[in-house]
Design a protein around this nucleic acid. Structure first.
Length: 735
DNA sequence: TTTACATTGATTTTT
DNA sequence: TCAATGTAAA
């Protein structure tokens, strides 16, 4: 402890204040790129070294595994030691840990399983079928979000007031049934992890006292994303006595639609006495042009905590705004610009294309492919969410818990073994009548011979298979168990015989699962509540798979342009950023335009997008866009108008094209000429239209200029690239 | 049990 | 437009 002040080196004043503040409640309003994680990590180091807290006494909570991992890694690097005792984890992983440790007090079966939202949805669909409830009136997704919503508000079925409304009443009833099904199967969903652990602490005073005693300081990351339940959980755990450091940014709250409550920031200031508030406003990421634009945009929101980003760096290049004729033209501009950037020496991974909704990626991808630019989409399906992996996991779960109906149903006929819907229906019926699990019903059916014949044999074979797998794997190491299950269950063979490359990839994924298991036992796991052998390790592995479904990032050996939604870009930064589709109805999205609150969230999303850019930012929009198969006229987003003129620059097409540009204000010019009528007997063409040329073959019209005989169009031909053709000469046939 | 065809509906997504 | 469903037919 010779020199604790070293922890404060290279920090700015505000950061230093936050890091070294005396223990007490503190709210750190950390702007984008202001060194938030740095402060959090240094704060923990400070608490340990200057305040003398034991690593054991610190609890740090994040939202994502990635953030937790980063915090731990950086902390270890800073302190130069391994910190196995510090509790750094996501809300869910910490709740899970509590429940595993105190399963009896939590009134859970020892081997309870965690289900992800996919499992949850399946379970709900099943429930609706079983209860003959019209899934038109009660769409499974809606039921799911109702149930999750209740849990996030900390409400059990009996606490939900339907106000005598029949529809709500039905929802509540479904919630109740759902809960019962979970209890019977020993299943715990994400919301349940939190709610159950809150109840555990609340109802077991000795335990609560123990943890309140133990934790001397609680730190929370991304506080603006906490929901009601998480807030209550923190409040309970701290007992309003344990000092807390919470870090967040109200301007970056973009998950309100998922239950996050920005108000929690204000609430914290009010409810937790003597809260010191520190603002981190110096930005180390972007140019001042970008920051000015972001500040200007976000100032259109009301009831902010107040914060303005600044930088000691230079103004940098202006923000480029490009108005494309249509989505193809927009994509072409983006890809052309990327190619220029790469020629100038940028690597592709330094460049990101952000968009509001996933559907926008298609046109971009096609253009990237056509021009041979490698790209990667961030946020696709993750490892543990893949079908073949979920199937394998379902077998594994059955080994631990035969009463897991969801898993049983998932694999009872995968690979196909002659147990059709009819038989499963029968089993379900029986299970429901006698109030037992499917596994039990299956045995009862075999016992009293109501399951006979072909179906009976098949079911018997399945039951035997599960028992055999269980016996055969007793005493094996985790990865051996999984390998064995993959083979003997027939899953590997099942996928091997699948046609196409798909099957091959799936077999490889199953192999990858074995590798992941091996890594897990060797201690690479982020948060193993229990390490051990065989069944114990399996339990840990399954929990890990549910809580940490794998990374979005793929192998980055190839240098790729990054494509992602604005939501998934949060927390990341790139030297060059394109935001595509900056149009009314798309961004802000039409579903969010009416309500002021939701519109403000869209604006915050835009703010998040702008602040991802380090050096150069492009905003693009199209005047005509294919949406749901229809060509739609689009107007530039209001957000463009909210940016300061002095930092904007309209991009003009490489001098080739002169076309009317409306008014002095760039980027908000409305409809331009979007179709070319050749006049006379020339064909009538429009942008984006497919045409045929006798020499070049088929292509798409990207661009146009001029009139009459001299009119020219730019056509993108497959394999031939883009060409300008004079309508009077070229024999173009519309397709 | 698989395959073909119609119907539908369509933000954002960690855990 | 297109992907994900559900139904009908083989």
């Amino acid at each position: 402890m010779d020199d604790v002040t070293a922890i404060l080196d290279h920090l700015n004043t505000a950061q230093r204040e936050a890091v070294s503040a005396p223990q007490g409640n503190m709210l750190v309003l950390a702007g984008a790129g202001s060194g938030k994680t740095r402060v959090l990590v240094h704060r923990i180091a400070w608490l340990m070294q200057a305040e003398g807290l034991s690593p054991y006494a610190v609890l740090a909570v994040t939202f994502t595994n990635k953030a937790a991992r980063e915090m731990r890694t950086r902390l270890e690097a800073l302190l130069g030691l391994s910190l196995r005792n510090v509790w750094v984890g996501t809300f869910h992983s910490i709740a899970h840990r509590l429940l595993r440790t105190h399963w009896q007090d939590a009134r859970l079966p020892q081997h309870f399983q965690i289900i992800d939202s996919d499992d949850q949805l399946r379970l709900i669909k099943r429930l609706l079928k079983d209860h003959r409830i019209d899934d038109e009136r009660f769409p499974p997704r809606q039921v799911q979000s109702f149930i999750s919503g209740c849990k996030e508000e900390g409400l059990r079925p009996h606490q939900v007031d339907a106000h005598g409304d029949a529809y709500m009443g039905q929802m509540v009833e479904l919630y109740e049934h759902y809960q019962l099904t979970c209890e019977r199967g020993g299943l715990v969903d994400f919301g349940e992890l939190l709610l159950r652990s809150l109840e555990l602490l609340r109802d077991t005073p000795a335990l609560l006292a123990h943890y309140q005693e133990r934790f001397a300081h609680v730190l929370v990351d991304e506080f603006q994303d906490t929901n009601t339940l998480q807030y209550a959980w923190l409040k309970l755990l701290s007992g309003m006595k344990t000092p807390m450091t919470v870090v967040g940014d109200d301007d970056q709250s973009i998950y309100g639609w998922r239950g996050a409550r920005v108000e929690n920031i204000r609430r914290f200031e009010q409810e937790f006495r003597d809260t010191r508030t520190v603002r981190l406003e110096q930005n180390y990421r972007s140019t001042s042009a970008i920051l000015d634009a972001a500040n200007a945009l976000i100032s259109h929101n009301t009831s902010r905590m107040g914060k303005e980003l600044w930088t000691a760096g230079s103004r940098g290049e202006p923000i480029s705004v490009y108005a494309g004729f249509n989505d193809l033209d927009e994509a072409r501009f983006i890809v052309d610009t990327i190619r220029e950037k790469v020629n100038e020496g940028h690597t592709r991974r330094e460049i990101a294309i952000l968009y509001r909704s996933n559907a926008q990626s298609r046109v971009l991808e096609e253009t990237l492919i056509r021009q041979g630019v490698p790209y990667r989409i961030y946020g696709g399906q993750r490892f543990y969410e893949r079908l073949e992996i979920k199937n394998a996991l379902a077998y594994l779960r059955l080994l631990l818990n035969r009463d897991d109906d969801a898993s049983l149903e998932r694999v009872i006929n995968v690979p196909a073994r002659g147990i059709g819907t009819r038989t499963v229906e029968l089993l379900r019926e029986r299970a429901r009548h006698t109030g037992v699990s499917l596994w039990q019903a299956l045995h009862d059916g075999l016992g009293d011979a109501s399951l006979r014949g072909r179906a009976g044999t098949a079911v018997k074979a399945f039951a035997d298979l599960i028992e055999r797998l269980d016996n055969d794997t007793a005493g094996l190491a985790l990865h051996e168990i999984i390998d064995h299950v993959n083979e003997v269950s027939g899953l590997v063979e099942h996928h091997r015989s699948e046609k196409g490359e798909k099957g091959q990839a799936r077999v490889e994924n199953l192999e990858e699962l074995v590798t992941a298991a091996r890594a897990f036992t060797q201690g690479e796991a982020l948060d193993p509540p229990v390490a051990g052998e065989g069944a114990v390790a399996l339990e840990g592995f399954l929990a890990e798979a549910a809580l940490n479904a794998g990374d979005h990032e793929a192998d980055d050996f190839e240098d790729c342009v990054q494509l992602m939604t604005l939501h998934s870009a949060k927390g990341l930064e790139f030297p060059v950023v394109f935001i595509a589709g900056v149009e009314e109805g798309l961004f802000p999205h039409r579903m969010s335009i009416e309500e002021p609150g939701r519109l403000e969230e869209e604006r915050r999303l835009c703010y998040v997008g702008l602040t991802r850019a380090m050096r150069k930012l492009y905003l693009t929009h199209a005047e005509l866009r294919r949406l749901h198969g229809k060509e739609t006229f689009q107007r530039p987003s209001r957000f463009l108008r909210e940016l300061p003129d002095e930092h904007l620059e309209e991009v003009r097409l490489r001098g080739q094209i002169s076309r009317p540009v409306t008014a002095s204000r760039p980027a908000v010019g409305l409809s331009r000429q979007t179709s070319v009528n050749g006049g006379g007997d020339l064909p009538s063409l429009s942008l984006g239209q497919r045409v045929h040329h006798p020499v070049f073959g088929e292509g798409v019209i990207l661009n146009a200029e001029g009139e009459g005989e001299r009119a020219r169009v730019q056509v993108s031909f497959e394999g031939e690239g883009d060409k300008w053709l004079v309508l009077g000469f070229a024999k173009l046939t519309p397709l």
